[in-house]
């Protein structure tokens, strides 16, 4: 029996005619950062989104195989998808704060999960913003529209918003691809800090980023999981020729 917090078993995904994931089996341990790398269209983002069932909203999608969270199949019929997504939070490629205040953005998750107590909400908002390393920058403008923040601040706000629902695992889908280098560095630091409490899965096309922050790395190509292991092994001593070619920049 696999002891990892979250793992997939022979996961296949079809978008209509397209076979986007071809039998992916891998694990995502708690309190580590796992990076998914590979060229555009290789299936890394698709794989990430199967973990909290965000592909469900895409029409014509068909998924077989298993995703298990604490030993429970995420795709079982009796799964409560909102509860699943509460446990597996997600940060998207481009910052997508809601068109409401900073406070209301962070409080959104707790509120939909039934928390109404004003003091408790205040506390969660502050904790989450602190955990996302943005509290100092926004504490005086919690009531201001979130869309007035800079791109980097918006992304950290989105991380705070995801943390506020107390997830166990945080998925990050190329979270820095729309950001400048300084904001990127802040998000990377944050990811390393956050792994003390959360399991983190990050999709990135930036190999240096994967090398800097991840403990495990998985390399995807054309829907296949080519190689998967400790980051130091993947980058210094890849077993597969295709992995080596990609990492040394020969394609992709």
């Amino acid at each position: 029996m696999n002891q990892a917090k979250l793992y997939t078993k022979d996961l296949h995904l079809h978008y209509g005619e397209i076979h986007a994931l071809k039998g992916v089996s891998m694990e995502f341990p708690a309190r580590f950062v796992t990076a998914l790398i590979g060229p555009s269209g290789c299936g890394k983002s698709t794989c990430l989104k199967t973990l909290n069932r965000m592909n469900d909203t895409v029409p014509g999608v068909k998924i077989t195989g298993k995703v298990l969270l604490d030993g429970e199949d995420v795709y079982a019929k009796n799964v409560d998808v909102p509860t699943l997504r509460k446990k597996i939070g997600m940060v998207f490629q481009s910052p997508n704060p809601f068109p409401m205040s900073v406070y209301d953005n962070v409080a959104y998750g707790p509120r939909v999960h039934g928390l109404k107590n004003r003091l408790a909400l205040d506390e969660i908002v502050e904790e989450s913003l602190k955990a996302a390393a943005i509290w100092e920058e926004v504490k005086d403008r919690l009531k201001k529209p979130a869309l007035r923040l800079s791109g980097g601040q918006q992304q950290r706000l989105c991380i705070a918003r995801a943390l506020a629902t107390k997830p166990e695992i945080l998925l990050m889908d190329e979270p820095t691809s729309a950001l400048d280098p300084i904001s990127t560095a802040k998000i990377e630091e944050l990811a390393v800090e956050l792994k003390k409490e959360y399991g983190i899965v990050i999709v990135t096309h930036n190999m240096q980023q994967a090398a800097r922050i991840s403990d495990y790395t998985a390399f995807f190509l054309l829907g296949n999981l080519v190689e998967h292991g400790p980051t130091s092994d993947i980058f210094s001593n890849p077993k597969e020729k295709r992995t080596e070619d990609y990492i040394s920049g020969r394609f992709g």
Binding site: E72, N78, D80, P82, T83, H113, G114, K116, K166
Partner: peptide, 16 residues
């Protein structure tokens, strides 16, 4: 840090 009032440990409990 306060707990969310409705926190269910298992994902396979369909909420009503």
């Amino acid at each position: 840090m306060p707990e969310l009032s409705v926190s269910i440990s298992s994902i396979t409990a369909k909420k009503r």
